[in-house]
Design a protein around this nucleic acid. Structure first.
Length: 307
DNA sequence: AAAATTTGACCGTC
DNA sequence: GACGGTCAAATTTT
């Protein structure tokens, strides 16, 4: 496992460094304009820098290694507990109580363009709706530690509270990559059309989850086939279509160096085949093409997202 | 048959 | 002991 972690961490590290440099450049470019002219773009650049810094801090810390090690833990229910406990490593860790908490988002849809597999559902006390647990579909393939929790808001039934944990170190599979590449091509051609709905008629249910949620659907993967498969941070930060609030569950200092994996699914990449180092350059292009819409309402398949 | 979801149970944390 | 996160066998779907 350790042999796997090192190269992945190296790639991600290099990727984030590059992204940070790009964000710094962006911020520098924005210094020259008026606040009215650039709106929240400086804030955006600052947030990118913060995210990258935190990801780097996490990469060079223990968080990533621990999270990946977790993926290898398997419960053998057939084994007697007494005997198994002697050789079994420390039991699984709880994501929310660990320092892997990344961010909390409130969205009008649970779709985020990434590929998730549902692994649990839990009724939460004092909450009207169950909490759904998703992990990266490639967790078992390459040990991607990214997970998320999705819960319908009690206050606003149209909102879904999504909590992300861990970084994506995967690239979401070849199919997703190819789709992502096509989508990115489409975006370049039609930067004004960003569809978070589904590309197939069969999946245009209007439901925020494609995974079944106590309902009838039994969809395989929680994904948005028509979504731009950008790293999440790119989609969120670039489009500013969600209400984002960073979380620091362990009351960490605000400085990037002290952060854990905060804000971090941002460093995910669509695929192993996809060149991770091209991510930042494309991100620059994406930002450039998206600048015109920041601050405006955007409608995705009838769902109005707002800044 | 393979893959994904459901769901009861396990177990760490508070 | 309650709560919540995760596991994995069973079930369902394709």
């Amino acid at each position: 496992m350790a042999a796997f972690v090192t190269p992945a961490a190296s790639v991600v590290s290099e990727l984030v460094v590059r992204g940070r440099e790009s964000a710094a450049l962006l911020e520098a470019l924005l210094q020259g304009g008026s606040p009215q002219e650039h709106g929240g773009l400086r804030e955006l650049a600052a947030e990118i820098l913060l995210c990258c810094g935190r990801a780097l801090a996490a990469l060079h810390g223990r968080a990533g290694v621990d999270a990946i090690a977790l993926a290898s833990m398997k419960r053998k229910s057939s084994e007697p507990y007494g005997a198994a406990a002697q050789t079994r490593p420390k039991r699984r860790m709880r994501a929310s109580s660990e320092s892997t908490a990344t961010r909390v988002e409130k969205r009008w849809t649970a779709e985020d363009g990434l590929i998730w597999r549902k692994y649990g559902r839990k009724e939460i006390t004092h909450s009207k709706h169950p909490r759904l647990y998703f992990r990266c579909s490639y967790k078992h393939d390459i040990g991607c530690p990214a997970t998320r929790q999705v819960q319908q808001s009690d206050d606003d039934l149209s909102l879904y509270v999504i909590t992300y944990f861990g970084d994506h170190i995967c690239c979401q599979g070849d199919g997703a990559v190819a789709a992502a590449e096509r989508e990115e091509e489409d975006v370049k051609k039609q930067p004004f059309v960003i569809n978070f709905g589904s590309a197939t008629a069969s999946s245009t249910s209007g439901s925020p989850w494609q995974n079944s949620d106590g309902g009838d659907g039994r969809s395989k993967i929680s994904r948005s086939p028509h979504a731009v498969c950008l790293p999440e941070g790119r989609a969120e930060l670039g489009l500013k279509v969600t209400k984002v609030e960073t979380t620091s569950l362990d009351s960490q200092p605000a400085g990037p160096a002290a952060a854990d994996l905060s804000s971090s699914p941002d460093v995910s990449c669509p695929s192993p085949a996809w060149d991770p180092l091209s991510c930042c350059l494309e991100w620059d292009q994406f930002i450039e093409s998206s600048f015109d819409f920041v601050g405006e309402f955007i409608n995705f398949d009838g769902i109005t997202l707002y800044q």
